[in-house]
Computed example of a mutant assay.
Amino acid sequence: MPPINLAIVGVGKIARDQHLPSIAGNPDLLLVAAASRNGAVEGIPNFPTIEAMLDAVPFVDAVSLCMPPQFRYDAAYKAICAGKHVFLEKPPGATLSEVADLEALAIEKGVSLFASWHSRYAAAVEAAKSFLVSTNIQSVHVVWKEDVRHWHPNQDWIWQAGGLGVFDPGINALSIITHILPTSIFLRNATLEFPENKHAPIAADLNFTNSDNISVHAEFDWRQLGEQTWDIIAETSAGKMVLAEGGSKLTINDTVIPVSSETEYAALYRQFASLIKRRESDVDLAPLRHVADSFMLGKRVFVAPFHD
């Protein structure tokens, strides 16, 4: 089969660091156009808007949307209405309702919609899932702490309403948890810390449980200096499991478990191409639903102002 003609919308840091190399390394995909207000990709036509791109390059088969979530719905709607398959960076949208609307539209138009959760494709995640299915889980502790100044320098959108704040990285942890646990979890209580000068939280403490009353405690913080922490620790009847470094390393009872060498975004684009070939969609809203529950149920505490 000929490669899928792919366009990318939103040429920022994540697109350059992750999307473009992964697309280039996938023989099923051919990057043919880009649209971005502030960036460009060498060697292909570039446009200021998705509308201009779709008008000028009608042979685009699929579109990868890498702009902030507040602006993703309009672009996805236009692409789907034009008959294009759509890849949504995480989180897939600013609200649950708009993503549900896009999913219904994709079904109506007969195109594939992929709500990508890149951390689910980290090297050790599937091995962790297999282990947890084989044992009885007693408790889970998630520690997701990083330095926002390092990862999002001077990015105002993450602090605006809809930008998610600390849930921008925290949703990665939630995407892993909802994938590896054998049963669904739900939020019991939460505390969200908001800087006095921001509309999104800088830290969150979340307590989940499930029908078996297993405790899942998650700590998210954007103020961590030095070594960054992206760990999921599970105490089980078969011992202690540590899924570390954002899902890239796994130890069980201090024994290192061999894992896949494929990178997250390479695996994402492999999945996207497969969905297109099968004319299927993959739209799991569980991680975003947990974020919405946290904002709905969480106690809000105001802390010191934050300045870049």
Rank of each mutant, 00 (worst) to 15 (best):
G43C: 04
L187G: 08
L88N: 00
R300S: 11
A204K: 12
V63W: 09
R270S: 11
L20F: 06
G110C: 06
N154T: 13
P258W: 14
Q70I: 06
L29S: 14
E146D: 12
Q155K: 11
T229W: 08
H19P: 01
H179I: 00
D168K: 04
H217G: 01
H141N: 05
E196A: 15
F131L: 11
M67R: 00
L285I: 08
K240H: 05
G165W: 15
N197A: 15
D61I: 07
V9A: 05
L275K: 12
S261E: 15
T191W: 01
A100M: 09
M296G: 08
F167G: 01
A75Y: 00
G83R: 01
S97R: 07
N197L: 11
M296A: 14
N136S: 11
V111N: 00
S134H: 10
A34Q: 10
A204W: 13
S215G: 07
A7S: 11
A15T: 04
M53S: 05
T255L: 14
P153K: 10
T236E: 09
A273G: 11
N207H: 10
I171G: 00
D55H: 08
L206M: 05
R37H: 15
D212G: 12
E264N: 14
V99I: 13
A122L: 00
I214A: 06
N197T: 10
I257T: 09
G163D: 12
A124W: 07
A304S: 15
E146L: 13
